[in-house]
Amino acid sequence: MTETVFGRVTRLLAAFDEDEPSLPVAVLAARADIPLSSAHRLVASLVAEGWLVAVGEARYAIGTRLWELGELSPVAVRLREVALPHMVRLYEATGENVHLAVLDVDVPPERAEIVFAGRITGRASVPTLGREGGRHPLHTTGVGKAILLGRDEAWLDRYLAVPLLPETSRSITDPEALRADLARARARGWASTHGEMTLGNISVAAPLAPLTGLPPAAIGVVAHAGDALEKRLAPMVTQAARELSRALRPDA
């Protein structure tokens, strides 16, 4: 089957990542498995349309037009915009990092990850790895575990069929241990991690109610590990999740 131009453009744009947000054409061609001559033509067309922008010397990055189109997605327009006031209130109440995440529903459970849809932090907040648009595992993040609480057994079976990779020495990688952890979280209504994504940090998160047209989502807080901090944060996080869920309802 002859590959379409759209397919090549998709692979070329997917060549960018968080570690290297700008790349030369040769690297783009290699990562996208596209002949260098074709990559040069595609890059020139994408720059002309504003999808890519030239930065530095012979390097390219995602352009403003592509970012503008992304801001029209339901995750941005319906979820993040409504969520921002609730995230601000949660930050003001806790002084800690607040994360809003969604499940990537465009891939099968075996490849599932969360995507950060929003983030609020301050100078006194603990450093975290999350950024808007960044991807992270479900099983090592509080918001990821919170999203897992709403997945059915068939979905979880497929997700757990793939080895769970550790992020730290405290990451839960045994499928049955993760199922037990999720069962405890489901019973109390919120999920948590303890040094499973970053040593020395804890996270507390709660899922949002399902809403037609939006992917499964969760809101959570990340803080330095401390005695009784988890139980102090949990009521504030679950309240924020309930209030945001109500605000997102069409009749709200």
Rank of each mutant, 00 (worst) to 15 (best):
P216T: 03
L79A: 07
H86N: 02
A187F: 12
M236C: 08
P74G: 10
L13Y: 01
P207M: 05
K231Y: 08
D152H: 13
L164W: 12
D19S: 12
G95L: 02
H86P: 09
V222W: 00
A206G: 01
A185Y: 09
A30R: 12
D19E: 13
T2P: 15
Y159F: 15
L248G: 09
L46S: 03
L69T: 14
V47M: 05
A218L: 03
A223Y: 02
V47T: 11
D174K: 09
P235Y: 04
S38P: 00
A191M: 02
L84V: 12
E196R: 09
N97R: 03
R8Y: 01
L229Y: 08
G63W: 04
A183C: 12
E71G: 13
E132A: 14
E196H: 10
P210L: 05
R65E: 15
L248M: 05
A206N: 02
G122P: 02
T193I: 15
R131F: 14
E96G: 04
L208G: 10
W155V: 11
L199G: 14
L165E: 15
R135I: 10
V27N: 03
L229S: 05
Y91C: 02
A30H: 07
L42N: 04
P108F: 03
R232C: 06
L160I: 12
G95W: 02
V27D: 13
A44M: 00
L148R: 08
H139D: 09
G130K: 00
A217M: 03
R111Q: 14
K231L: 12
R8T: 01
G118H: 00
E132P: 15
Y159A: 06
P210W: 04
F6A: 11
E49K: 09
G122Y: 00
P24E: 05
F6C: 01
F6D: 08
G130S: 15
A48F: 00
A124R: 02
A112E: 03
N201T: 15
R131H: 15
S245L: 01
E3Y: 01
G7S: 06
S73L: 10
A154I: 06
T193G: 05
R119Y: 07
E71D: 14
S73V: 05
R170P: 14
P109N: 04
H194P: 05
P109Q: 03
H194E: 12
V98L: 00
L52Q: 05
V98F: 00
I120M: 01
